[in-house]
Write a protein that binds this DNA or RNA. Structure first.
Lengths: 145, 145
DNA sequence: TGTATTTACATCGCGTACGATTCAGTTTAA
DNA sequence: TTAAACTGAATCGTACGCGATGTAAATACA
């Protein structure tokens, strides 16, 4: 990593733009379901493993309670999630999918897939990109900041 | 790009996390100056070329007026920017740096550089990553979404 | 010329995103 | 066994980020 200044400024900006681009693309795909991108991420986690604690979801998504709690509350209002106090630890709450959220999984995933296919990232080497991003994010994890 | 589903879900998530990681890192570096990351991006644009129209800044950063306008207003309150109506086009406004914003350039850039060096992204191939991200973002540009 | 469209900016509503604080419940250790 | 330290959530304040709408100025064009 020689000459971090210019290079890194541009790297952080490319990441920033890519993130906002993805966010907008997914927003379009998820709009018919009245879902936002972060809400979709919560569903992805719970479709993989239902009944997690708020804490666990936050860890997987890298979100603090200040961000995650309002998202979960909106999804409860939408009738997608249910929250119940854990018996073993009364501070903690278990978040579970409703039937509605379970039954729409296939349709939502199909809509996202359709969008991705229609977008067709010409020539982008997604494998390499993912690998490099994972390395980058792993680096962040070991930092004090 | 075979099997977009899982792969792409993860790609968008890696980008999402990387963006938030960068944002937090830069936030730390910029905190002493009472600057946020998006505010810093505005400064980067204007340090390169002062006296741009709001429209130009928005184009370079990929931000709409709904996002950019409040940022500029805060930076005016901070005493970093000045806004004046364009004479040639009375709808447009020229955004210029104050002396304060010009004089702090070196110190801000040094602080960011120090932070980047102290973070030391071990083994991350920034060149390749940048290249792939630029391709990705170029793809987004040619999309309808 | 006069009207229709477009453009530049402002504002609004909603939904993140994050650090800081608060509070109740849990664990640790003296 | 308590007091102290810690932990999981909730809440608050500030700042994006975006689509939609509003308004005035500029441009197109019939």
């Amino acid at each position: 990593m020689e000459k971090p200044t210019k290079l890194e400024q541009q790297l952080c900006f490319e990441v920033y733009k890519a993130s906002s681009n993805f966010s907008k693309m997914y927003a379009k795909a998820l709009e018919p379901f009245n879902l936002t991108f972060p809400q979709y991420l919560v569903l992805l986690v719970l479709w993989e493993e239902d009944g997690l604690l708020t804490k666990n979801i936050g860890e997987r998504l890298g979100l603090g309670t200040g961000t995650l709690n309002p998202i979960i509350n909106r999804m409860i209002e939408q009738g997608r999630l249910v929250k119940e106090q854990s018996q073993s630890d009364k501070r903690a709450f278990t978040i579970s999918l409703t039937e509605k959220a379970k039954s729409e999984q296939a349709a939502v995933e199909q809509a996202v897939l359709d969008k991705l296919i229609s977008c067709d990232f010409m020539g982008v080497n997604a494998i390499t990109l993912m690998k490099n991003l994972k390395e980058l994010n792993a680096s962040f994890k070991t930092m004090d900041l």
